[in-house]
Simulated assay, not measured.
Amino acid sequence: MSNPSKRQMKSAARLYAVQALFQMEASGQTVEAVRKEFEDFRFGGEFEGDEMVEGDVEHFRAVMEEAVNRQALIDQMTDRALVAKWPIARIDPTLRALFRAAGAELVEKSTPPRVVITEYVDVAKAFFPEGREPKFVNAVLDHMAREAQPEAF
Rank of each mutant, 00 (worst) to 15 (best):
I117K: 13
S27I: 01
N69G: 14
D92L: 00
G131N: 03
I88E: 01
K125F: 00
R90F: 14
D40Y: 08
A101Q: 09
V68D: 08
G55F: 04
V63T: 13
M9W: 02
G44I: 03
R146C: 11
F41P: 04
H143R: 13
R42F: 15
E66Q: 10
A33T: 11
A62L: 10
H143T: 12
V57A: 07
W86M: 12
L141G: 05
I91D: 12
V137R: 06
Q8S: 08
E66A: 11
P113D: 00
R80A: 15
V107E: 03
T30R: 09
V68P: 00
E105Y: 03
E51P: 04
L82Y: 10
M77Y: 12
T78C: 10
R35I: 01
R14Y: 06
L73R: 09
D40C: 00
V57C: 04
R114Q: 12
F127G: 10
M24L: 09
A124E: 06
G45P: 06
M52N: 04
E66D: 03
P93F: 09
F128L: 02
T111F: 02
V63Y: 05
F127A: 06
D92C: 00
A89H: 06
R132T: 12
E48K: 05
V107C: 01
R114I: 07
D50K: 09
K85E: 15
R70L: 11
A89K: 14
E25P: 00
V18C: 12
E51F: 09
G55H: 05
P87I: 01
E65L: 07
E151A: 12
A152T: 10
E54P: 01
N3M: 05
A102E: 08
V137K: 05
G28I: 09
I91W: 04
A13K: 03
R80M: 13
V31S: 11
A62C: 05
V116E: 05
V115F: 06
G49E: 11
V116F: 04
F43Y: 08
G44H: 03
K6Y: 14
P112E: 13
E25F: 00
E147I: 15
A20T: 08
V34N: 02
V31C: 12
I88Y: 00
D92W: 02
S27K: 06
M24T: 03
P113F: 01
